[in-house]
Design a protein around this nucleic acid. Structure first.
Lengths: 215, 215
DNA sequence: CAGCCACAGATTGTGGAATAATTCAATAAT
DNA sequence: ATTATTGAATTATTCCACAATCTGTGGCTG
């Protein structure tokens, strides 16, 4: 018998650099709007210029970085005006994902989603760091999208979530912990009771709170 | 008085190459699955190797090209099994787009969409080349998405449409012209009468016909 | 002082070549 | 038939060079 092929991890220099830069951007170390100067980064990570440029180009395609001709790359800084369209796309993905998820599981959402919500509730009960709350919150929505079992929707959603996180990282939202918890318990109930459209209002709510937090 | 600043078009070598390669892929000259050997392409377009590699990397991020480490790039060839997930994403985008479009125009679709359908009907009436039919057909769906006025949904849809075209280019679908025309007139009526969900069945139909055509 | 110009330094865009590493196909060996 | 070996082709990465572009500074002019 043949055992299942277990591919070992081999990362090229570009790929490794890509992951590092992505992580640095997503955790806020490379702040939105900040310039990504080639010489600095090549020295810091000890890679050749072309290697760095390849990584930057991928990040640009991902939407995490903006490249302007002859002016270099900088971490993408979303303007408030761009949030609306971004949330429209998010709505498109997440509503359809929840529809698929419900259809796949006979009108209910799978245990993974329920667990994610329970975890969010548990986190909110204490007095956690905000980063822990956002992580748990993102898990909930990610669990919903994953439950759809549609890899393409999931991939698109992940890219979007990363882009949004770059924006969110620079501000403190204004949700209270108990409200965050309750809101998502309600969402879950509504989704299973009245279908995917329950997400629409929920996401709109999220946009409003983000807009308020960004003054 | 100052005239409105009109930025002139300045394309870098990478950008120019990117456009050429994209066009070659989308019109089928570079067939799905075919290898993109660096030496060949650099000689053909007289660019440096790194310039080409940068363009390929962007195309990979777009989904038109697949890059495997140490094995180079090839034009992406979609397997039939990947069509389902791709159409799920397409459904997510187009259904939400049509919802926004209807909301923006008081429950109707704007003239651009009606014109696009009329054009498709006119094209189908003759005995046109298949490429003319697909072009007119793509215009209809693109008009619907554009009518939503959501740049992010539109961008995602365009990327998807390009990816799908790479797949479709290699086969002759089996829609009859009159059926194509009638089907979209019905779609338009249903959209305005009963809302965005009318698209769901329409897209599912499209997937079925593609799957049948691909044996 | 505001605005314009010119210049120098810094940074990016592209090219070219060299070397290491990897793949792939063909052949030889077990 | 399977496994090794060999070698050519191709990709991955680096280093260097140079032109084009951007940016800030200082001086000049009105």
């Amino acid at each position: 018998m043949t055992t299942a092929p277990e591919p070992i991890e081999r990362v090229s220099a570009v790929e490794a650099l890509l992951r590092i830069l992505r992580a640095r951007i997503l955790d806020g170390e490379l702040a939105p709007g900040s310039r990504l100067v080639e010489r600095e980064l090549t020295e810091r990570f000890d890679v050749a210029r072309h290697t760095l440029r390849a990584a930057l180009r991928s990040l640009a395609a991902e939407g995490l970085v903006v490249i302007e001709p002859d002016r270099g790359a900088r971490v993408k800084a979303l303007a408030a005006a761009e949030l609306g369209p971004l949330f429209e796309l998010r709505t498109a993905l997440e509503v359809e994902a929840s529809r698929l998820a419900l259809a796949r599981h006979g009108g209910r959402l799978p245990a993974t989603v329920h667990q994610a919500v329970q975890h969010l509730v548990a986190v909110c009960a204490g007095s956690p760091a905000w980063s822990a709350v956002t992580a748990a919150h993102d898990d909930v929505h990610h669990a919903i999208v994953t439950a759809a079992g549609s890899p393409r929707i999931e991939a698109a959603y992940d890219a979007l979530a990363a882009e949004l996180q770059v924006f969110l990282i620079q501000m403190r939202p204004e949700w209270s912990m108990p409200r965050m918890a309750k809101h998502h318990q309600t969402l879950l109930r509504d989704l299973e009771a009245s279908g995917p459209d329950a997400l629409r209002a929920h996401i709109a709510d999220g946009l409003q709170s983000v807009l308020r937090a960004s003054h």
